[in-house]
Design a protein around this nucleic acid. Structure first.
Lengths: 359, 359
DNA sequence: TAAAATTAGTAAAACGTTTTAATTGTTTAC
DNA sequence: GTAAACAATTAAAACGTTTTACTAATTTTA
C-alpha cells in the first residue's frame, strides 16, 4: 500500500506552511494568486487528497448526512423511498457530503436510535416518509438540522420537501373531465394521510372549476389503509351504491385494486369505467390496461432535500422552508384517452418505455 | 447543543487514564475485571460514545465499506441491486461499519473515481454487478479488500457472492419436466453473461438427468442483451423454427418478453406453452398469467458479502472465498402446475402476496 | 507622513481517539 | 533466591487536518 500523500508533503514541496495549503484547499482566507497556483500545481502533481477523518476531526464536522426511514418503508417492494435516496446520493456529491442510510422501527426505543446519531456522525438528517415523532424530537435535542421528504409532521412547522398533491389531484381530475366523464369517483383509502387529503382537495378543486357538483357518495375515504386491497374494497363499496364512469384513485396501488375488482365483475376498462392513478409505480405498465397516472419525480425530491438541508447546515438562520415538487400526467390506456382519439399512445412507444429487465 | 462527552470525562470520573478507558471500550489488552466494570459503569452514566472521526483518525481505519455499482444498474426500475444494498446495510451494523453507496459510469475515467477511494474513506469495497475492470484494478492498487456480488470477474479469481445459477436452472427445468413437458426451450439472451451460462448449464443438467436430449435449436442465446425486448425477439426466432411446449427463460424480463410475443400471436399460456422465469422480480405478479420463477434472496447476497468482506479486512490471510446462495422455486400460473392439479395456487393466496402498495 | 487598515502568510493549538513503549508490582521457573 | 515472564496500568506520541492568533509587509486614509 503506497504511503499516503498528506498536506505536509504539499507544504514541503511548495516551501509553504501547511496552513497556507489548507487555506487554498478550502478556498478560505487571503492567499496570493501566485501561491495559490503553486499549491494547486503541487496538489495535482502529488495527487493529494485531504484525509476525511482528519478533516472531520479538525473541522468538527462529519460531512455526512443521515437518511432515516422506517423499516416498512424501506423493505416495501416498490422502490419509492429508494429512489428518493438515490436523489440524495447524487446531489450530496456536489456538496462533498456522504449520505448514510439507516432504517428504524415504527416504534421508538432507545436501542433503535441510529448509530450515526449516537456517534455524532452526521451534520444533518433527512427523514423520509412517516416517522415516529420521538425520533424527530431526539434529533432536535441534538441540535441537528433536519428536513422531511414526503411527510408532514402534523401540528408542527418543519422544513419539508413535498409532492404537490393538490396540483396532482387537480390535473388527474381535469384530465378525466376533459375526456368527457361526468360521474368521477374518488378512491382515497385513508383520509388521515396528509397526501390523500391533498389529492382529494385537488379533485374537488377541479370539479368545482368545471362546475361539476361534488357528490360525497362518490368519495370513498373510509379505509384503514391505502394499499391495493383497500382499493379493491373501496371499489366494492362504491359500486354497491353507484356506478361512476371514471375513477380517480389516490394512488396506483389502490388503482390496481380497482382494476382487479372491475375485472372480476367483467366491467370493461376504460370503456365502461376509466381509471387514473397516482405515483407512477412500476406496476402501471405491467397491468392491463396500462395505467394512466400522475408521475412524481422521486429523485427530485431527494435532490431538493439535500440542497435545502445543506443550506440549513451552513446558515441556521435560513428558517423553515417548504418546497412543493410539481407532478406530471402520464397518459396510458386506462383513462380512455386513446379510445377517444385525444391522444395516441402507440404500443411501440410504450414498449420502448418498458424497464430494462433483469441482470 | 450539549457539550460532547469525551473519553477524558470517563477517565476523570473513574480516576483512570484515557488509555485504560480506550482498552475497555475496544476489549483489548489486559484490564482487571474490577476496573473494567468501573469504566463500563461510568460510560453508562455519562452516556459516553466514542467520536467516530477521532476513532477513525487514530485507528487508521474508516469503519466504512464502499458499495459500488454502475449508474445503469442503480437507476433501473427493478430494485435488484437496491435490495442487495439493503442487505449490506443491515449486516454492516453488526460489525459497526457504515456502507457508503456510490455509482460509477460503465466506462472508466479518472474523474469518476469514487470520492471515498480518493479520500481513503473506506476499508473495503463491495462491487455489485458488472463493473469495468479498471475500477477493480484501481481498488486493488490501493490495497483494499474487495468482494463481488452477482458478478464474476472473468479470467481472475476473486472473492464473490453468487447466485447459484446452475442450481436455479436445474430446478426450473426439472419443474417443467415433472409437469410432463417434453419440448422445453431455453431463452438465454446473451450467452456471454456468466449468470446466463450457469443457468444454461443447469438446464442441460436437468435434461440429461431425465434422459431428454438437448436440442441446440431450442436454445436461443444469440441476443446482444438480456432485456425484455431480447426475450421477445428470441421467442420470435424460436417459433419461426419450432414450437416448444414449454420455455425456460433465463430471467423474468425475457420471460415477460416471451409472454408479450405469445399473447400477440394468440398462443395460450400455459395451455399451449408454459413459461418459467428467473429472479422473481416485482412484475411477475402483475403480468397475466402470473409468472412462475426462481426466487433469489437479494438481501441475503448483501448480507453474506459484508460478512465475508469484514473477515477479509480483519484477517487478510483468509484467501479468496466464493459463496453460492441457494435459490427457490416459486410456483405461480405460467407453468401450468395449477392446471395439471399438481399445485393449487388459490388466488387469495397470491393476493396476499401482493405488494403493500404505495404511500 | 503617521496611523490605520488590509493583505499574505505562518506557528501552534486543537480535535478525541488509538497505540506504542515504558513502568510497576506480582507470579512463575529453575 | 534470582531471573524471567506476566498482568495491570499509563505517559506520550501519533493520526492529518482546521482554525486562531499572530507577524510582517504593503496599501489606504486623513
Amino acid at each position: 500500500m503506497a504511503k499516503r500523500v498528506t498536506i505536509r508533503d504539499v507544504a514541503k514541496k511548495t516551501g509553504l506552511s501547511i496552513s497556507t495549503v489548507s487555506l487554498v484547499v478550502n478556498n478560505k482566507g487571503n492567499v496570493g494568486e501566485e501561491t495559490r497556483m503553486k499549491v494547486l500545481k503541487a496538489i495535482e502533481e502529488l495527487g493529494y487528497y485531504p484525509a476525511r477523518s482528519a478533516k472531520n476531526l479538525a473541522s468538527r464536522k462529519t460531512w455526512n448526512l443521515g437518511f432515516i426511514l422506517t423499516e416498512e418503508h424501506f423493505s416495501r417492494s416498490e422502490p419509492f423511498y429508494t429512489k428518493i435516496f438515490i436523489g440524495t446520493e447524487l446531489e450530496s456529491r456536489k456538496y462533498n457530503y456522504y449520505v448514510l442510510l439507516t432504517t428504524i422501527p415504527s416504534q421508538f426505543s432507545k436501542s433503535s436510535i441510529p448509530r450515526f446519531l449516537l456517534e455524532n456522525n452526521v451534520d444533518g438528517i433527512i427523514f423520509a416518509g412517516k416517522v415516529n415523532q420521538k425520533y424527530v424530537r431526539y434529533v432536535e435535542e441534538l441540535g441537528l438540522s433536519y428536513i422531511f421528504v414526503d411527510y408532514d409532521l402534523p401540528g408542527k412547522k418543519v422544513a419539508a420537501v413535498m409532492i404537490d398533491n393538490v396540483q396532482g389531484g387537480e390535473i388527474a381530475t381535469e384530465h378525466l373531465i376533459s375526456l368527457g366523464y361526468k360521474k368521477i369517483a374518488f378512491i382515497g383509502g385513508d383520509i388521515e394521510h396528509p397526501s390523500i387529503r391533498g389529492r382529494l382537495e385537488g379533485y374537488k378543486k377541479a370539479l368545482e372549476k368545471s362546475g361539476i357538483n361534488c357528490d360525497e357518495n362518490l368519495c370513498v375515504v373510509d379505509e384503514p389503509d391505502t394499499r391495493m386491497v383497500n382499493g379493491y374494497r373501496a371499489c366494492e363499496k362504491l359500486f354497491a351504491k353507484f356506478k361512476p364512469d371514471a375513477i380517480f384513485a389516490a394512488n396506483d396501488a389502490m388503482a390496481i385494486g380497482c382494476v382487479r375488482f372491475l375485472k372480476e365483475k367483467k366491467i370493461k376498462i376504460p370503456d365502461e369505467v376509466a381509471i387514473v392513478g397516482f405515483d407512477d409505480i412500476e406496476a402501471c405498465i405491467h397491468i392491463e390496461p396500462r395505467l394512466t397516472t400522475i408521475r412524481v419525480d422521486k429523485e427530485e425530491l431527494g435532490i431538493i432535500a439535500v440542497r435545502r438541508l445543506v443550506e440549513m447546515i451552513n446558515s441556521p438562520e435560513v428558517g423553515i422552508i417548504r418546497t412543493y415538487v410539481p407532478v406530471e400526467l402520464v397518459i396510458r390506456e386506462s383513462c380512455g384517452a386513446k379510445l377517444k382519439g385525444k391522444v395516441s399512445v402507440p404500443d411501440k412507444d410504450i414498449y420502448a418505455q418498458l424497464p430494462n429487465g433483469e441482470m
